[in-house]
Design a protein around this nucleic acid. Structure first.
Lengths: 189, 189
DNA sequence: TACACTAGAGAACGATGGTTCTCAGCGCAA
DNA sequence: TTGCGCTGAGAACCATCGTTCTCTAGTGTA
């Protein structure tokens, strides 16, 4: 028998896999039960409703995202390098089997209009990413606007890579980000 | 009584409004019937299945998108201006009531994994937009890569504007595009 | 008037979903 | 051993959905 923490973890991981691969509404709670190996009763004692489970999955994804970005940034010596590392992180992700775009964007499109909790979780995640970018941009001594511009490239890369399956997207996004950063540094070339 | 063409148009328009506002799976065919004022029997004689209706809605959106982009581009004298006009078009759109992101991205996230027809329609639309950008970029005498980079900004702007409701996104995307274009012109400042 | 045909309203159908309930089995305290 | 409480498996429940069917009313024609 699993303790609450392990059961919770198993359910979230299973739901994440299924929701990401097929979309939330295409996956029944029974499929989650089967994938997680945790009874429906238990799932509903851990999460009051499917909506709460979706939110838990998104929070879990936020943690993974943050960790991935941090790991990529750790290899860079400068703020500029840390910003561009985002695109190397994306590049590796886009090449993974089963990559299907940004789970937050997908969930927002599917449920944002009908579930305020999901919409809020998505917004929170995207705002947190923008805050992160802004922090690094400031370290680099560049204006805040640059952060949003780089973020736009990262977001666009995610949806475009998902839809077109073009494996080159992250590299192009990185080069565009370089151009934006170069243009933003006070003319000291 | 409506002839087939008018009925088709009414159904597509109604479905478009509902699907865009709430997501596809959250809208039943009965709601489409009520909104369009066309009987279920008629709808099913016009579209073999909901999936086909979704595809028809997407094709209709593609036409609207193309027309909007063309209209925006018509006011610009240079290829560079036509490229940047995309962001003015987006800016006006983002400010509309009920703006909820790109219908193609939303549909792809929701149905891309389960409906090959929807996935194909979305891919087609995005590829067509990339082709358009590539054409204008070539007119400007710039390398193809620039087109994809500008497209990434436009895509990122759409999802970010939808999620954060930040009204300034299109302007920032435009400025980033300017930086990319400037960086791409052979150094003749 | 009688008839054939069509279209719309909405009931019906079969499937599926989220959520709850039942029940049989197990561990454990006394 | 007896009985209590908890658990998992899955049936049950109720709503909803996509799709089809029925029935009624109206139209045009002879």
């Amino acid at each position: 028998m699993l303790d609450d923490v392990s059961a919770r973890t198993a359910v979230v991981a299973a739901a994440d896999r299924l929701f990401y691969a097929r979309g939330v509404q295409s996956v029944g709670m029974d499929a989650v039960r089967a994938e997680a190996g945790v009874s429906l009763k238990r799932i509903y004692s851990l999460f009051p409703s499917k909506d709460d489970l979706v939110v838990a999955v998104l929070r879990h994804r936020t943690e993974q995202w943050d960790a991935g970005i941090a790991r990529a940034a750790a290899g860079a010596a400068t703020p500029r390098g840390r910003l561009l590392a985002v695109f190397d992180f994306l590049d590796a992700w886009f090449r993974e089997d089963g990559f299907r775009g940004c789970a937050f964007i997908n969930s927002f499109g599917e449920l944002g209009a009908t579930s305020p909790a999901v919409a809020a979780a998505v917004r929170e995640h995207k705002e947190s990413f923008q805050r992160y970018a802004r922090g690094v941009v400031r370290e680099a001594g560049l204006p805040d606007d640059v952060a949003l511009q780089v973020v736009l490239l990262a977001e666009g890369a995610q949806t475009t890579a998902a839809i077109t399956q073009d494996v080159d997207v992250a590299r192009q996004a990185r080069r565009a980000a370089e151009a934006i950063l170069d243009a933003a540094v006070p003319a000291t070339a």
